[in-house]
Structure formats: C-alpha cells, structure tokens
Design a protein around this nucleic acid. Structure first.
Length: 479
RNA sequence: CGGGGUGUAGCGAAGGGGCAUCGCGCUGCUUUUGGGAAGCAGAGGCCGCCGGUUCAAAUCCGGCCACCCCGACCA
C-alpha cells in the first residue's frame, strides 16, 4: 500500500523505466531505431535543465554559438585517439544532391574537431584568450543498445568548448564546469552526485583527463550525468590552435570541453521514481502543482471551478507552475495519473472544502494519507511555496540517504563481490592497471566509475592487487 | 556480428487451411464522480513483405525484412 522511495527490491527497473517514460507521456518511440520523439511533458523537463545550466554558463562568462551538424570526415581523423574512440558509432553521409560526395560527411558525435578548426582561425594572440564558448545542439552516436533518454542514437546536449593560455587555466576551467554540473544536479535535480576523475580506461577519446559527476539511480546502479574534459594540447596540436604570447612566442592553446545531455532527464526519472511512477523535484517539474476539482453536478462544478480559478490565479501570480485538470474523469483516476507523472503537489478542491474555506494539499514525496493535509484557503500561496521547498529538500535528503546506505567500503575482492551481489557501489583503495580494471569488469560486471575528488587522505592497500595505493576509487554497475 | 524470440486494429493478445476474433483504448448517448466507474450503441484490418502449394492461405512451404531480449561500445 505505502509507496516507498525506490529500492532495488521494490521495482524491476528494466520494465519500470520504459513503461514510465511512455505512460507518463515524456517520449515515444520513433520510426528510427534508438531515436525517440520527445513529447511536451518530457521536453519541459529538458527545458528546466537547459535553463538551469544556461543561467550558470552566463554567470561564468560563456557565450552561446552554433556550429554545423556535418563534419568533414578528415577532421575526425586528425586526432588519432579521438577518431579511434568514435569510429564505430559514427553516422556518415555519403550522398547528397543526388550525387556521391567527394568526401563523406560525418554527423557530429561531438564537435571538438569542427570547433577546433574555427578556434584556430579566431585565436591570434594571448589577448583572444580565454575563449569561452558553448553550443546547444543535437549529436548522433550509433550505439548498439539504446534506452529512451539514457542512451539514444540522437541526443540533445550542450557542449562547452574553451581555449586557454596555460595548462593550469584549462584545468581550473575544467573543474569549474564540473562544479557547475554538480551544483545544478544537487540543488535543482536533487541528485547528490559524486564529483570524480575517470580512469584512463574510461576517459574521453583524445583527452588528457576526464572528470565526471556520477549519480546513483534507484536500483543502485551508477549513471554518468555530466563530463568535463581537460583536452591538454592534443586538439590544439591537431587543429593548429596557436596564439602569440606576451613574449612574442607562438604557443599551442590548452583546450577543454564539457557536456550535459538529455540523459539528465533519464537520471531524474531513475534517481527519484518509485513504484507509483515519477517523482519530479519541484525545481524541474513542468507542473509544480496540479489542481483537481471534485464535484457531482453542474452547479457544484461552477462553484468549484470558480474557487479553483481564483486560487490558481494567485499561485501563478507568485510564479508557481500550476495545471488545472478539468478532464471528464473521476478524481481517483486523476490522482493516480498525476502521481504517475510525478507532479510534486496536488491541490484538491470540492464542495466540502469550499464550505469550510479549506483546500487539500497532497505531496508526492510522502506517500498516502501521511502526505495529505487540510489547510485554509487563506495564505495558500505561502503554504504551497514552503511545501515545494520542503519537497525539494526532502527529495535530495532521501536520495542522499539512499546513496550513502548503498556505498560500501571494500578491502578484498571477495568483499567487492558481495557488494556486486547486493547492489551498490564499492569504495576502496585502488592501485591497479587498465588490465586489472578490465579483469574486474569481465568477472563481475562492475567498472571503475571514478576516483572521487574528495579523498580521505593518507594511503592504503589495493583490495585487488595488494599494492600500496594512494587513491580511493568507486566501482559500480553502470548504465 | 554471434545465441534466443516475436511480427494479426492505436496497445496487448488468441486463432495453425473455409465469414477476421477477444481485452484495453477510441467515438456517441445515458447514469456516475472525495482514490483507477457502469450500461447501451458505434468506428477501426495490406493478419510484416515477396513468392510458392491449394478450389480456398493469417494459417502450410521458401526467401526476405523489421523489431525485442542476452553478449562486445557509450553522455
């Protein structure tokens, strides 16, 4: 009866996830395998993510621009590691205008190369640095296995691209944007992500270092929700991005790139959903409040709708996103429907409430009668606003508690295997090679998610190799 | 690309040579409505595609295509 925050035991996520995406009307399948049609309700969640990020980008001095969808194949080939990393998943255009093209065009899987080409022209002097750009775009990666939002053949994202005079400036930028992602995830998406450094195995093709934020989903699996790369001088050298220094010496730039995608919509679904459906954090919810009228006949309908219209007007004037559900369905149906769609607060108004000048508020994050309260219509706006804040904070708290109770310290391979069995992340001292990582993946299915930036200090013994280790690493199953 | 499976109404399924079926959903009307309502009347089909066998094919045979699940890639 009572609906709990999701645990691996309560929901079969593989079935739950797709069903919820489609039933909640976030998206539907497209004629092309692995692509999705994002429907209005899903799009508005993405827009909330977009707005949250874009505001932060402006605050950190980045400008938006747009670069072409098509990239000459030869561009990709200029950075050896980059082309090797992306080749298997490229979509390539060979014909256009009724003719075979002289050089095939790649549909961008990411834009480092074409933006690098532009940067090379734009940057002459140290006075042009740093160059801080961002673009909102779609990219295509022909993945073998896809899931709506979490991994689609085409996805939407923002990709930031910057150029700097020194390694340290580029590194500072990389870490700053990682902080931006973490701040957004925690304060708006209510997902307590871990900031970390990727291993060489998992880093971006062509990068010096890749940082990431990892979130724990409701099934205790890990999802990389954003990445920030320090590209070193690799792309600068491949694309000839040079500047003349104050000392009149020609130098290669240091570049960065960073991105967050529509995968974040999937992260919000997976991190917060329960067995009744979605639970959306108020800050990203398309509708923060849904008003459900309750009435028996036309005269009651008139009275109820009059009250609702008045209250909704007040709520909207206070900047709260409200939807009025006046469909010809039973109230019970609507309650379940909006719970499934994850609306944080439901406002019920019926004749009995109007008699007492009351309203009913039900919160999505607290299940059943516990979450339902009868309140006066006086001061409703302030009450709803407080309630939304409380829900936002409570959802972050729930997700944090869930995450922390599913991270386990391990000192041996056997202990790690127990964690894999139970579900969760294993945290332990790590001093292993890429081959060791691959072996662990083959044998258990878990991968090295990241080296968290917050390290306890000191040193220890690697749980696999027994070698002295300087760093703690997180291992977990990934999406 | 390997192994397994499925294609019949918008969705989910039954039917295995002889009128194209059922449930949900959809449309209309009526009664309902404080936690997923009910009755009546309707609409909706290239039975994945191409070929073969047959008086007759959704059904049997051959080929093809698409999609799903499990492995190798990934924001």
């Amino acid at each position: 009866m009572a609906s709990q925050a999701v645990t691996p035991q309560s929901v079969d996520f593989s079935k739950w996830y797709n069903e919820i995406v489609y039933r909640a009307d976030l998206a539907e399948q497209s004629p092309v395998r692995g692509c999705i049609i994002i429907k209005p309700y899903g799009w508005e969640i993405w827009e909330a993510i977009r707005n949250g990020l874009d505001r932060r980008f402006k605050e950190t001095g980045h400008q938006n621009a747009y670069f072409p969808l098509f990239i000459p194949e030869s561009y990709l080939k200029r950075e050896a590691e980059h082309v090797e990393g992306f080749s298997p998943e490229l979509a390539v255009v060979t014909h256009a205008g009724g003719k075979q093209l002289e050089e095939p065009l790649v549909v961008r899987p990411t834009s480092e190369t074409i933006i690098g080409e532009a940067f090379a022209k734009w940057i002459q002097s140290y006075r042009d640095l740093p160059l801080l750009m961002n673009q909102w775009a779609n990219v295509v990666r022909w993945e073998m296995r896809t899931r709506p939002f979490l991994r689609t053949a085409e996805f939407l994202w923002q990709e930031g691209h910057t150029a700097h005079a020194t390694h340290d400036e580029a590194e500072a930028e990389t870490l700053q944007m990682l902080d931006v992602y973490a701040d957004f995830s925690i304060t708006e998406a209510a997902i307590p992500v871990v900031k970390g450094l990727k291993s060489d195995n998992e880093k971006f093709a062509g990068a010096l270092r890749t940082y990431c934020i990892e979130g724990m989903m409701g099934d205790a699996k890990a999802l990389q929700a954003g990445t920030s790369h320090n590209l070193g001088q690799n792309f600068a050298k491949a694309f000839n991005i040079k500047y003349l220094s104050r000392e009149n010496v020609e130098e290669y730039c240091w570049t960065t790139s960073w991105g967050m995608s529509t995968r974040m919509v999937g992260a919000i679904i997976m991190a917060h959903g329960d067995d009744k459906g979605l639970r959306l954090p108020p800050k990203v919810a398309p509708f923060q409040v849904v008003a459900v009228p309750v009435y028996k006949n036309d005269s009651e309908e008139g009275m109820v709708m009059e009250t609702i219209t008045r209250l909704v007007k007040e709520l909207r004037a206070a900047g709260i996103r409200v939807h009025v559900d006046n469909r010809e369905e039973s109230p019970g149906f609507k309650y379940n429907d909006w719970e499934m769609r994850g609306v944080p607060v439901r406002l019920e108004i019926g004749p009995k409430d109007i008699e007492k000048n009351n309203a009913v508020l039900a919160r999505r994050d607290v299940p059943g009668k516990e979450g339902k309260q009868f309140v006066s219509q006086e001061g409703l706006v302030a009450r709803v606003r407080d309630l939304l804040d409380d829900i936002q904070a409570n959802m972050l708290r729930q997700a944090t508690e869930f995450r922390d109770s599913h991270i386990h310290d391990v000192k041996s391979y056997d202990e790690l295997k127990v964690v894999v069995e139970q579900g969760g992340w294993a945290r332990g001292w790590w001093a292993g090679s890429s081959e060791d990582e691959k072996r662990v993946k083959d044998e258990t299915g878990v991968t090295l998610r990241c080296f968290p930036l917050e390290q306890p200090g000191g040193s220890g013994i690697c749980w696999l190799t027994g070698k002295p280790a300087e760093k703690i690493a997180l291992f977990g199953k990934a999406y």
